[in-house]
Simulated assay, not measured.
Amino acid sequence: MLRWTVVVFGAWCSQAFGQGIYTCVDAKGRRLTSDRPILECIDREQKELSSSGITRRRIGPSLTADEQALEDEKARKIQAEQFRINEEKRRDRALLSRYPNKTVHDKERAIALTQIDDVMATAKLGAVELSEQRKSLEAELEFYKNDPTKIPPRLKRSLEENANNQATQKRFVDGQIAEKKRINDRFDEELARLKVLWAQLATPATRVAPAPSGAPVPLPNS
């Protein structure tokens, strides 16, 4: 600890030392004076005085390694918060630029949802075809219900492929349903923020109050 104090004090002196008088009150309550920064007051504020006794500047206490780490962490949090605020402002500007009013926002939502609906409609047609194919295969399977050992390998493969395709189709449709919900949630979240931003833009600027009745009205320059 002593070595650390000496190192810090040396660096501190190199920054603080000047032609002046240094004074402070140490931990024991003693007022100390020196022609250079005072080691006993490294952990507290010192004053640098001119030869006439006027305070030139105040020198803050030197920080230990732990204190410096805390200060660095505090600065990091402040910087991170400022970055978050700047990012939020940037996103707000981008939102307003893309959606100047609710009509534009509603239109883009409708386009995005229509694209999902078109994909789902095609997928559902495929599901209907697979269902019809399944009925045909099961009808053929009826011929072998009394002796399943005679089921042709081709029919077994077709039944298995149909089952796999139906499962794949269902997963795809479920994924599109989830995607549609995600799109709606995103537009709902955007709309909630946009309503605030639009309201701020619509708020009229503060007007200057009119002059009191009877007050002289300034004439335009001739």
Rank of each mutant, 00 (worst) to 15 (best):
R57L: 05
E40A: 15
A27S: 15
E45N: 14
K74W: 02
E87P: 00
K77A: 04
R91A: 06
E71W: 09
V25K: 09
A75M: 02
A69M: 14
R30T: 00
G29M: 04
D72L: 13
R57K: 15
L70T: 13
R84Q: 07
E81V: 02
I38G: 02
A80M: 09
G53N: 13
R57I: 00
A27V: 12
P37K: 02
I38E: 04
S52F: 09
S34C: 14
A80G: 05
E88N: 02
S52K: 15
F83C: 05
K47N: 10
E67V: 06
A27Q: 14
E87K: 10
E81R: 13
K74H: 10
D26H: 07
I38Q: 03
L70H: 14
K47D: 04
R90V: 01
D26G: 10
E88F: 00
T55P: 09
R57C: 02
E71G: 09
P61F: 11
C24L: 05
E67C: 01
E87V: 01
A65V: 12
I42T: 01
A75E: 04
T64L: 05
E67L: 02
E45M: 12
S34G: 15
L49Q: 02
D72C: 11
R76C: 03
I78Y: 00
R31H: 04
S51E: 15
A65I: 11
R36Y: 13
E88I: 06
L39Y: 14
L70D: 15
I78T: 02
E81P: 06
R84S: 03
A80F: 06
K47E: 09
L49C: 04
R56I: 11
P37C: 03
A80S: 09
K77I: 03
I78W: 02
D72V: 11
E88M: 01
F83Y: 03
E45F: 09
E81Q: 10
C41F: 02
D35C: 08
R31I: 01
P61H: 09
R90K: 07
T23P: 02
E88L: 01
R30V: 01
A27M: 13
L70Q: 15
V25I: 03
D35Y: 13
I38R: 12
K74I: 04
G53P: 05
L49G: 01
K28Y: 13
I54N: 12
Q79D: 07
I85K: 13
R31M: 03
R91W: 00
R76Y: 06
D66C: 08
S51V: 12
T55W: 12
I54Y: 11
E48M: 15
K74R: 14
A65S: 10
D43V: 11
Q82M: 08
I85V: 11
A75S: 05
R57Y: 05
V25E: 02
R91S: 04
G29A: 04
P61S: 12
D92N: 08
I85G: 01
E87I: 00
S50A: 15
T55F: 10
I59N: 08
S62K: 06
Q68V: 00
L49W: 04
D72M: 12
C24F: 03
R44A: 05
D66L: 13
Q68T: 04
Q79A: 12
D43M: 14
E45D: 14
D72Y: 08
S62H: 08
L63Q: 09
F83P: 00
E40R: 15
I38P: 03
C41Y: 00
Q68D: 11
K89E: 06
S34E: 15
R30L: 06
I38L: 07
E45W: 11
